Amino acid sequence: MAYILVADDDDILAELVQIRLETSGYEVCVTEDGGAALTQARLRTPDLIVLDTVMPILSGPEVLRVLKSEPELSNVPVLMLTARAGQDDIAGALEGGASEYMTKPFVPEDLLARVEKLLAASNSPQD
Rank of each mutant, 00 (worst) to 15 (best):
L73Q: 11
G34S: 07
E95I: 09
P46Q: 08
R42E: 13
V63T: 08
E62K: 05
M102W: 07
I90P: 00
L51I: 10
Q87V: 11
E15W: 01
S74M: 08
L79R: 06
I90M: 08
L118D: 05
L118K: 05
V54S: 13
L73R: 11
I4D: 03
V107D: 15
E27R: 13
P125Y: 02
I12R: 09
Y26L: 01
R84G: 02
G92W: 01
Y26H: 14
V17Q: 09
G34D: 04
L58H: 13
L112A: 06
A120W: 09
L51E: 07
I12P: 00
L119T: 10
S69N: 07
R114S: 12
L111R: 04
L67P: 03
S122T: 11
D89P: 01
D88P: 00
G35Q: 12
L48Y: 06
Y3P: 01
G34P: 03
V6A: 11
A37T: 06
G92T: 08
Q87L: 12
I4Y: 02
V50L: 14
G86C: 03
G96P: 05
M102C: 11
K68V: 01
V78P: 12
G96D: 10
R20Q: 11
I57V: 15
P125M: 03
A41L: 06
R44Y: 08
D88T: 13
L94P: 07
A2R: 03
M80T: 12
R44E: 15
D52E: 11
V78I: 14
P77F: 08
E62A: 15
V66H: 06
V28P: 01
P56Q: 09
L81T: 10
D110A: 14
D52K: 03
D11W: 01
L81K: 03
D127P: 14
A7I: 05
P56N: 10
R44P: 02
L73F: 10
L43A: 15
K104H: 03
L118Y: 07
L111A: 09
Q40G: 00
A2D: 12
Y26N: 06
I57P: 00
A14R: 02
A113G: 14
V54A: 15
